[in-house]
Every structure is written in structure tokens, then in C-alpha cells.
Design a protein around this nucleic acid. Structure first.
Lengths: 209, 209
DNA sequence: CGGGCGACTATACGTGGGTATAGTTTGCTT
DNA sequence: AAGCAAACTATACCCACGTATAGTCGCCCG
């Protein structure tokens, strides 16, 4: 994990503040989190937060930026390992809550777009090995898949309730992975159902055009 | 109050306040939304909101309750129509934003659980027609599927950016449905990939037990 | 008529919390 | 050593917003 020092700044007060902000924003959301609380967690004064980041909004942006850096590192690591690409929820441990917040209330758009970009590459490669063209563009599919993959981070609480396990535990992670693996390898719709639905969609499209 | 009639209250100030709250909470989130703003949208005074609902928290709970009522109605309608079960994002139109907020910051747990319940029924029925048992319980699968289905409501903004269309428009809806239909009817993982991943998972599980 | 009650408004109160400023310590350069 | 900039603290400001109170209007019941 700490094979290579990630950032020499990681012991500075600035880094501590940023990490505390990550946690507070993740736990309570951007609005409910207070600069005072963040300062206390980081063990610094209120003013120092402002000195380093200027405003709450700027602090949030710094967190977003840092999240992106983390993500790139995790992605490179995960690419080598097996199962890496499957479980974004596991991959990012303590940053999961912040990511979830950033996706819904904040500005994790670059992160999402990056996932789509990677997915597109992945799909284009896979499509090339296919006999018949897919009929739906890789970008649309990658978008849908990215959203689905992130749902487990965003809806963690509900997924945990549904599965009856905590997703912090490795046991919970495995439980989720097993279910994911099943769903990802078994189509939800039979060919007949899909054909029927597609027909219904075509009908509806022609009628409203 | 607590009228028993279906919707004769829908023109009363109380209903207007509730609807305005739904919109404000959905657009800005619970914290950022202000009672004053809600009152203004509803065309009433600040005090009347308090008179009818008592507190901001209670107002939110009234919204949650109303959302559940709406959902039940929409679900019954959707069950009959074709394509109904597929696109929860389309189904709930103006309530989508509020639902997304409630799922992440609020208390839409009953709603999620209801979706899981319905999914379990659906899957148990489908499993009965299967030759071999699925290996992953219906509840786990239903949970995963529910989360995935809701991701398009929660991550609407990002999905719209990815697809390049607005999900308000019927055109955007169709675009999404087409992509969904493809993904739902084509497994993401080939049998070999799935087997490999499952093997890796088993290995990992045995090593940590 | 009158009086009581629910719908509704106007105004005030208190405070949490983001922002701003002034002051103190630390450390580095010449 | 001097001095200056960055790191850091203490304190004050101020206003948005949830909450609370007092009061007005209109309707129904006896």
C-alpha cells in the first residue's frame, strides 16, 4: 500500500484538512458538514482551513480533485488484478461515501465521464470480436453500465439492507460480488421478452414521430 | 386533514405546499431548500407551512409519505402496460428528483425495500421455470437489480451527459430504453469470464476464511 | 348574534456557521 | 541578525433560516 509515498504533502496540515473534509462531506453531505467540524477533526483552527482553501466551496473542489487523483491510482492498480474492474464499491474504500455525495450533489462529472471513457474502450475492443454489430452504440452502453456499477456506491445503505450484510466487511463484499457476477453473466430478459419489448418500443417510437 | 378521499385535497393550500416542497427538496436537496422558498412557490406565507406541517423535518416526512402513495399508484398502472417495469426513471416524472434525494440523503428505505419485494416475487416466479437453480438467492439478485434500476434516477445528470440527450424528452427516454434493453438482454460477461471471476472469488474466499 | 375554531399573515427571536480581519509564531533566505 | 513570508490562532461579524408568537379573517354551529 505505502510502497511508494503517494504525496510528500500527505502529512502536512493541508492534507489533514483535506482528508478530514473528505470524511465529513462523505458522512454528512456538503451542506451539513461544517468547516468548524472539519477543522476540529484535522486538529487545526478554523482560520487555517480558510487560509489554505479560501472557502468551503473551494475546499470541496480540492476534495474533488484529490478524489480524481486517487481514482486514477486505484484504476491503474485494479487493472492488473483480477476482479478489479468489477467492484468499484470495494475498490475505493474510505472514499466511497464522498464519491457517492459528489455524484449526486457535487461535481463528480469528470469521474463519471472517465468511467464512461474507459468503458467505451473496453466495449469497442470486445465488439471487434463479435460476429454481428451490437445495434446500440458503445457510448450509450458504457453510460448505462457505468451508472449501474456506481449504483452500489451511491445506494450502499439500501444494498446493505437488502443483502443483510455490511459492505464494509469482506464477507459483504463477496456476497455482493457473487450476486453481481450472477446478474452480469445471466441476461435479465429472455430473447423473447427482449424482442417483444423492442417491438413495443419501436411501435411507440413510430407513433410519436 | 388526512383526508380519506383520493385527491380532493389537491387544490388546497396544504397540497400546494407539499408539492412545492417536493420540487424544492428535489431540486436543491433537503438542506439547501428553505421553508421560505417553498412557501413562496406555494403562494402562501411562511407561517402557514409551519401551521400545517409543524417543522421542516415533518414536512419532509409528509413528502416521503406522499411519494410512497404516488409510487403505489404508478406501480399499479405500470404493471398493466408493456415496458412498464423497465424504466422507473420514466415512470415517475416530476417526482424523480425527489426520489433521488430521498434515496441518498433521506429516508426512501421503504420505497427501495418495496422494489426489492416486488423483484423477489418476480424472480421466484421466473426461477420456477428454470431447469437448474440459480445459485444466488432471489433476494440478493433483486437487491442488485433494484439498485441498478434506480441508478438512472439517482445519476440522471450524468446519464444525460453520457447519452447526450435529456431524459425529460421522450426521445431521451427511448434512447435510454434501447440501451437498457440491449444491456439487459446481453450478458456483460462471457461464460468463460464469469467462470474465471467466480474461481478467483472462490480462491479469495477460501484464503480469508 | 356570538363565539370558537381552523386557515392564514406579519413580525420577532436566536443561532449556527461561513466569512473576514487582526495578531502571533515559525522558518528560511541573505 | 534582520526581515519577511507562510503557517497558524483568536475573535468578531453578519445574515440566512428554522422556530416561535401574536394577531386577523372567514366560516360553521347553537
Amino acid at each position: 500500500m505505502t510502497t511508494t509515498a503517494p504525496d510528500p504533502e500527505d502529512l502536512t496540515a493541508r492534507a489533514r484538512i483535506r482528508d478530514a473534509a473528505l470524511r465529513h462531506f462523505g458522512e454528512h453531505g456538503f451542506e451539513r458538514a461544517t468547516i468548524r467540524g472539519i477543522a476540529e477533526t484535522a486538529g487545526v483552527s478554523l482560520g487555517l482551513v480558510r487560509h489554505h482553501f479560501g472557502s468551503k466551496q473551494a475546499l470541496r473542489e480540492a476534495c474533488d480533485e484529490h478524489l480524481m487523483k486517487i481514482m486514477h491510482r486505484l484504476h491503474e492498480e485494479a487493472a492488473s488484478r483480477p476482479l478489479g474492474g468489477l467492484n468499484p464499491v470495494a475498490a475505493m474504500g474510505p472514499y466511497r461515501d464522498y464519491l457517492a455525495r459528489a455524484l449526486t450533489e457535487g461535481s463528480a462529472a469528470p469521474f463519471f465521464d472517465e468511467m464512461v471513457r474507459i468503458g467505451v474502450q473496453w466495449l469497442e475492443e470486445a465488439d471487434r470480436r463479435l460476429p454481428d454489430p451490437p445495434g446500440v452504440g458503445p457510448r450509450a452502453r458504457a453510460t448505462v453500465i457505468a451508472a449501474m456499477a456506481l449504483s452500489f456506491s451511491v445506494l450502499t445503505k439500501h444494498v446493505e439492507r437488502g443483502l443483510g450484510v455490511s459492505l464494509e466487511s469482506t464477507e459483504g463484499q463477496h456476497e455482493l460480488l457473487r450476486a453481481l457476477l450472477y446478474v452480469y453473466s445471466h441476461p435479465l430478459l429472455t430473447p423473447e421478452e427482449a424482442a417483444e419489448a423492442r417491438a413495443a418500443l419501436d411501435r411507440r417510437e413510430r407513433s410519436t414521430s
